[in-house]
């Protein structure tokens, strides 16, 4: 197997030189300041001193850590540690980055900042392998997704491909009373009745004219719809569909998302 053009078996240090790894547990030195942590990385990557200093200053700025640069990493908040962690990974300008659950345990604003940074990195041409438990995150960030179930790849493809595999979405209609609901059931024989007799789920693609058609039919039949909502399949549906044979909670399935798999 090759990573970044280096053989994993015969040239492990060549591989190490082109990759960056940010694990699930932050790999920062608590007894050093943010700036010292970055300097440590610059020195270990053998960057010449001025280049290293420039890189450190640039990363502190970019990751909004400049104000906290001279504070010990042990005093950082969760989001700051994660940013410092990723910044340390980026000191060596790796071509392939492994991110293991980069937003687990982060508050929503910190997660947004992280997403933005990851998006910028991917746009700059870096290959990112990202694992996550949050499927909305995978949907948002990834070009290629591999769903892992019990250590095996259960499904692989672009987010759109994966969603297409489990079929279209549905329109959910709620009616004011049972009479209206019964009429609608007659009108729409393909619809599924929900537990609650007042709700119908109508299979639908998401084209405007088919929705207009549905509403027109209901209107013509004098059926009043109290509430309407549209459901697109999301990756949660995909995950449940491809891992359906397992009892929830028993499966050790890590849904994982790979962004642009590394050349292998």
């Amino acid at each position: 197997m090759h990573v970044g053009g280096h053989d994993v078996r015969t040239d492990p240090d060549g591989v190490r030189a082109v990759i960056g790894v940010t694990g699930q547990f932050s790999a920062v030195d608590n007894l050093l300041t943010g700036e010292e942590n970055l300097r440590l990385m610059a020195d270990l990557r053998h960057l010449p001193r001025p280049a290293g200093q420039r890189r450190v200053a640039e990363l502190l700025e970019r990751f909004e850590l400049a104000d906290a640069a001279s504070r010990l990493a042990s005093t950082y908040s969760g989001g700051m540690r994660r940013r410092l962690d990723l910044a340390m990974t980026l000191v060596g300008e790796p071509k392939v980055i492994f991110l293991d659950e980069p937003t687990t345990g982060l508050d929503p604003p910190s997660r947004l900042v992280m997403w933005e940074i990851i998006g910028q990195l991917a746009a700059s041409g870096v290959t990112i392998l990202l694992t996550t438990q949050y499927l909305d995150e995978a949907d948002r960030l990834a070009d290629q997704i591999a769903v892992l179930d019990q250590g095996r790849i259960a499904a692989q493809g672009t987010p759109a491909e994966l969603k297409a595999r489990i079929g279209g979405g549905h329109v959910q209609l709620r009616f004011a009373d049972l009479d209206q609901a019964a009429s609608a059931r007659t009108l729409l024989p393909h619809a599924q009745v929900d537990d609650d007799d007042l709700v119908l789920r109508v299979p639908a693609d998401h084209r405007v004219d088919s929705l207009r058609r549905l509403l027109y039919d209901l209107h013509e039949a004098h059926i009043a719809v109290e509430d309407l909502s549209m459901h697109t399949p999301d990756l949660d549906d995909v995950f449940l569909a491809v891992t359906a044979h397992h009892v929830p909670g028993q499966a050790g399935g890590d849904p994982a998302d790979q962004k642009e798999p590394a050349p292998s």
Partner: peptide
């Protein structure tokens, strides 16, 4: 026990 050692292991040092 610190995470930084795991990082060192992933680097060409």
């Amino acid at each position: 026990t610190a995470g930084i050692i795991d990082r060192f292991r992933t680097m060409a040092i």
